[in-house]
Design a protein around this nucleic acid. Structure first.
Lengths: 202, 202
DNA sequence: GTCTATATTGTGATAGAC
DNA sequence: GTCTATCACAATATAGAC
């Protein structure tokens, strides 16, 4: 199934993504998106009826990226520790590629909480599959008897937070040195795995 | 030192806090703040010159709450484990009282990263004191040799994230049931301590 | 499809009476 | 100090020519 999008439509989507990610819905300006795309405002409304509709397109797409597709690992025939290592590494790599994604999603998710329930209907129920996978490991006695909810929250928190709070943490942890903070993020791939695994060892 | 604020000024500050916390700087409207305070727009400009100045007052105050004053615990004569337990419990209790604080601070910190460096100058260097405290424990051989930076990032992430991403996590973890999610947050006080302590045990 | 020009409404800020 | 009325401009959206 090839999604046949015109060049202009694609151009608008990329420009809108850039501006919405940086400024959020309220801060973004249609004029700025038009400039970014090298066209004029009227064309934005021609392709997408309103600012809201344009945003919807961007947000839905971003949301799918935010829940990484890692379900396949859960069924793979590898140890739980290894699954966590792979999950964390993939997750953080994805976030390094889309560093503004967390702050964008968190901002908009708080701005308009109602929208999310609707989103989840379209995307499916990946999270509950993950929770069941963790519970299975507890039942088998492979890990200590902690709430799967808590473990999942911990994994996501440890991966996402350093990106969501980057401007703050970069000052506190690495004297506002961007290169140093990038190293810190790289090191986290191993550190987060280690932290999680240590915390659920029998 | 009694800060002599008029009733009206206090009224405005509370209204502004409410609206800015909910809508963010870009989403907030001076009219809405005026309504919330039961006065008119002109008075807002009489007390605070501009929207920006009013926001500055709110943000600076929120920011001080965001870095809880826990330095005293670092010097107390108790075990490192106990210090972490107290820190986490105080931190999460504070967040339960100001549940919108994380999303507010994260949004604004990403919207205007430049402002933060300046803020830190006014607030002082609490974070570096915490980092040194952790390093001391490593040196004494009380905990495993992990980077203090990573530990601090982990503690803050585990405490803050469930509040910052609440609309999302409440759907994923507790079927969008507010009461259930509050229980989850309560349980986290013990869980986070346990997770951190397990992960740094020798 | 793409543009310029314009309508329409929203919003921060000020003037001036009381 | 507090209000009403209003300014000045910014921003979304549309009309209509090409």
């Amino acid at each position: 199934m090839i999604s046949q999008e015109t060049d202009t439509e694609q151009l608008i989507l990329e420009a809108a993504k850039k501006v919405f990610f940086k400024k959020g819905y309220d801060g973004a300006r249609m004029q700025e998106i038009a400039n970014e795309a090298g066209i004029n405002k009227a064309l934005l409304h021609y392709y997408f009826r309103s600012k809201d509709k344009l945003f919807e397109a961007i947000f839905f797409n971003a949301f799918q990226q935010f829940i990484p597709s890692v379900v396949e690992n859960l069924n793979a025939d590898i140890s739980f520790e290894r699954k966590i290592e792979i999950f964390v590494e993939n997750y953080i790599n994805m976030l390094i590629n889309f560093p503004q994604l967390p702050s964008f999603v968190l901002t908009e998710v708080n701005r308009n909480p109602e929208r999310i329930a609707e989103m989840f209907g379209k995307i499916g129920i990946i999270p509950s599959v993950i929770l069941q996978g963790i519970q299975k490991e507890v039942d088998k006695g492979n890990i200590s008897a902690v709430e799967p909810k808590q473990i999942l929250a911990n994994i996501v928190a440890l991966c996402v937070f350093p990106f969501a709070a980057r401007p703050l943490l970069q000052i506190v942890l690495t004297e506002n040195d961007t290169a140093k903070y990038n190293v810190f993020l790289e090191e986290r791939k191993k550190e987060v795995s280690r932290f999680i695994i240590n915390s659920i060892k029998i």
